[in-house]
Write a protein that binds this DNA or RNA. Structure first.
Length: 802
RNA sequence: GCGGAUGUGGCGGAAUGGCAGACGCAGCAGACUCAAAAUCUGCCGGGGGUGACUUCGUGAGGGUUCGAGUCCCUCCAUCCGCACCA
């Protein structure tokens, strides 16, 4: 009989649905396993060939875990708020809700056709009011805890999307989504104090099993640094200028200071500044530059001196000038620095340009500090620094900070690059922020009983030109009575960013229909944390960081019982087009998974995506590779023709069977799906080589292949009259003792070069092995003196001879 | 500039410090066929040899080791992050 995936696949998909085969149980006494993949944004383009890679990988894990007796939760849902849907709605005058519904239906059909073992009873959608009820609820908790605040500050604004962006959404100075140049705009925005969790987000990484590159990126993004804040007295004034430095040891080399153009001291002493016009001009230029232009690889430093005001270096009492330059950012540290040109590249550049003194205070450089800054902290020794002279950098840091603290002019300080999360968008298609602005009472949270605050219907979804959300025009929605004083008040018209819904969705899956809480305590205690979460590297500093932050907050509030949401995080590589180029519409090389399923079947698609290469690395698509996997499944199906009776493994293949069970079991755990499949291909080759397969062998083989190719294996299980359903079977066991052959082929080397191989008993002693090896290469050893004999049992014998 | 990764046949890719190239693709030869496709069998890194064999070979150069694709040092190339964070 011919292998016909079309019939087989729809047949089994229906059976699995009818039997609720993959429903996560509520028997909380069973061991649980929570496998999670990032839920997709249901775009109009439908499923991309990149989606099935991670979904199949964890589907394999989930199916294997079920067969190992776990109560498995492997859910799927829709991260459906977002700009593309809204833009499509604007263009076509369709309600985004309808667009979303249509796209979700399409996505769901596509995913269904691939045969994933998702528990569809737990499907969630971030745009569903029953879902965003709890997104808003968490926001209120954040607000009440003082972690959500409104702030007027320069933000990254995309003039094309007409929306403010979080720092994480700005890539190379451009809008992550549309690619337009981002400009700086001062706006009043809701912010979340993720910075308050900076240290916890770093510390938590110690307790989880994430791939190293994810940990490293998160740590770099949070950007912890240790140093000191130091006060520099302004000459002739009581006030001081506070700086942050990681090199307090170089304080004696601070020959000038630099402040950011936005630094408040400029306004404060405007009257005393002698060159105010120049400064105003400089400020204006700086404000016009986008954040990107300001921080772009600027070789040429710009700046202007703050005329009429000087500072005093606290360690030596010397009067030093203050400069203004946009290489100092108001948003980091104190917005002011002490400049040590001898030991900082940027200060060195600036000093060279404006001819400022360079004083060496750390010796050990091979070139004089007039040639280049010496920034090495490992080898340097302090000089020209009075009581610090002769100390190594590390000791000097400690000593100077102690000294500063004692004198009350400085203090130890840790800083982070991480900035607070810009949490409001002037857009329609997002969760309304449940806050009412009362002129008397300020920002008043909506009562929790009033949630969800529904997104109102509007005529136009387009953001207004003055940068307000389209819902701002809905006056009857906006104008409300203050819940606090009853007076006239207005609702917040900004909505939440796309990242809100995904920051806690893994908690909703565990109890998706609960109307009285985001999830019951019992369910949370049972299911959390997620055991294995796979997702894209591109979310490392976005979704992954945000959701860890929210989860840690919920933990601190007592709503969840684990400090970290995800125990294990892995990341898949991208799938590129043929020839290693990115798939894109403009190149016309986009592969639609539907076409692959139609031509080769879902099992082939699944097998190919797992066989394509190392899971964590990017791989390029190859139609011939797909064909190869189909050929493999054809050969699998044709095993039906050579099945013979017998539950036992045949003598020829017994060891091979045990080896393959071991290999596949281990490889599935370690993301090595490609080699697991290779091992199964090799086993199939062996079945054909000996011309038969026993029923016992076939049973085991089908179970091993099932997680990868669930339809064909389930069909063959039935065809061969095996008991019940394959998906209800147990994962096969192997005996370690039977994974090794009685006799082994070992290499015989002379001076490290393999000369021949011999077959000896696995239990042969070293002496026996060496004796046998010597005999095999006796002619080569003739006339030589044996210096050394090395034997690694089961591997090699190496004779060192002269 | 900083951080991370990668570099192995014609291609995708395998190899706890122990026979480099598993498995797949492509290619070549043969079987089947009127023929083609599909399928099956065999070969398939380079040089040398009719041959059993031999020699070179994992980006380059050094080193450690009886033995290195794998460990260490230096360099080159490519990709991905971050980027004036004091």
């Amino acid at each position: 009989m011919e292998y016909s995936p079309k019939n087989i696949e729809s047949k089994w998909q229906k059976i699995w649905d009818d039997e609720k085969a993959f429903k996560a149980g509520t028997d909380y006494t069973k061991p649980k396993y929570y496998a999670l993949v990032e839920f997709p944004y249901p775009s109009g383009q439908g499923l991309h060939v990149g989606h099935p890679r991670p979904y199949t990988a964890l589907d394999i894990v989930a199916r294997k875990r079920r067969m190992q007796g776990y109560n498995v939760l492997y859910p799927m849902g829709w991260d459906a708020f977002g700009l593309p849907t809204e833009n499509y709605a604007i263009k076509n005058h369709i309600h985004p809700k309808l667009v979303t519904e249509k796209n979700v239906a399409h996505f769901k059909n596509q995913l269904h056709a691939i045969g994933y073992s998702f528990d569809w009873d737990r499907e969630i959608n971030t745009t569903d009011p029953r879902y965003y009820h709890w997104t808003q609820w968490i926001f209120l908790k954040l607000f009440k805890a003082g972690l959500a605040y409104k702030s007027s500050m320069p933000i990254n604004f995309c003039p094309s999307c007409k929306v403010g962006l979080a720092n994480e959404e700005v890539v190379g100075g451009k809008c992550e989504r549309c690619g337009a140049e981002v400009v700086r705009k001062v706006k009043s925005q809701w912010m979340l104090k993720i910075t308050e969790y900076a240290q916890k987000l770093i510390d938590g990484l110690e307790d989880v099993d994430y791939v190293e590159r994810v940990k490293v990126s998160q740590k770099n993004w949070i950007g912890r640094s240790e140093g000191a804040e130091v006060d520099f007295k302004l000459s002739g004034k009581e006030e001081s200028l506070r700086v942050y430095t990681t090199r307090p040891d170089t304080l004696f080399g601070a020959t000038y200071m630099v402040i950011s153009p936005e630094h408040p001291i400029i306004e404060k002493y405007a009257a005393e500044i002698t060159n105010l016009d120049d400064i105003k001009k400089y400020q204006e230029e700086a404000s016009k530059k986008s954040e990107f232009e300001r921080t772009e690889l600027v070789k040429d430093k710009t700046g202007v001196i703050l005329g009429g005001i000087n500072a005093i270096n606290p360690v030596n009492g010397k009067e030093i000038p203050i400069w203004i330059s946009d290489y100092v950012l108001m948003t980091y540290g104190t917005g002011a620095i002490m400049a040590v040109p001898a030991h900082d590249d940027r200060d060195w550049d600036f000093a060279k340009k404006f001819d400022l003194p360079i004083i060496e205070v750390v010796g050990g450089s091979t070139v004089p500090v007039t040639e280049a800054a010496f920034t090495d902290v490992q080898t340097g020794v302090l000089c020209n620094s009075e009581f610090l002279n002769g100390l190594e950098v590390k000791e000097a840091k400690k000593k100077i900070i102690d000294w500063l603290e004692e004198k009350g002019i400085g203090t130890r300080k840790v800083n982070y690059k991480l900035r607070d999360w810009v949490f409001s968008r002037q857009r329609y298609w997002g969760e309304p922020i449940p806050i009412i602005h009362c002129p008397k009472c300020g920002y008043v949270p909506l009562k929790e009983e009033e949630l969800p605050l529904l997104l109102p219907e509007v005529d136009s979804y387009e953001p207004t030109d003055n940068g307000e959300s389209p819902i701002a025009a809905m006056r009857n929605w906006v104008e409300v009575a203050c819940p606090c004083c009853g007076g006239k008040a207005e609702r917040e018209t900004d909505t939440m960013p796309q990242w809100a819904g995904s920051s806690w969705y893994f908690l909703r899956y565990i109890d998706p229909l609960n109307d009285s809480a985001f999830a019951s305590k019992e369910a949370i205690d049972y299911w959390m944390p997620v055991d294995w979460y796979n997702g894209g590297m591109e979310h490392t500093t976005l979704h992954l960081l945000y959701s860890r932050f929210w989860h840690k907050f919920l933990y601190d509030q007592g709503y969840v019982s684990s400090k970290e949401p995800y125990m294990k995080r892995t990341s898949h590589g991208m799938i590129l087009g043929e020839g290693g180029i990115k798939m894109s519409k403009s190149r016309g090389n986009v592969i639609n998974p539907d076409d692959i399923i139609a031509e080769y079947g879902a099992d082939t698609l699944r097998t190919y995506e797992m066989f394509i290469g190392a899971f964590e690395e990017s791989a390029s698509w190859s139609e011939n590779g797909v064909k190869g996997c189909r050929r493999f499944l054809d050969r699998v199906f044709k095993l039906n023709d050579i099945v013979v009776e017998g539950d036992a493994y045949s003598k020829e293949l017994e060891i091979k069977m045990h080896q393959t069970i071991k290999k596949v079991s281990e490889d599935f755990e370690n993301l090595k799906f490609n080699t697991a499949i290779a091992a199964m291909m090799a086993l199939v080759n062996d079945f054909y080589k000996i011309g038969k397969i026993t029923k016992g062998e076939l049973k085991t083989f089908l179970v091993l292949l099932n997680p990868v190719a669930p339809h064909i294996t389930e069909e063959m299980w039935e065809m061969n009259g095996f008991d019940g359903r394959l998906y209800k079977t147990s994962w096969p066991a192997y005996e370690e003792a039977k994974t090794v052959e009685d006799s082994v082929e070992i290499a015989v080397q002379v001076n490290g070069k393999t000369r021949t191989t011999i077959i000896i008993s696995r239990t042969a002693s070293k002496d026996e092995a060496i004796a046998a090896a010597k005999e095999a290469i006796a002619d080569r050893l003739a006339g030589q003196t044996i210096i050394k004999e090395i034997c690694v049992p089961g591997k090699i014998v190496n004779i060192v001879a002269k």
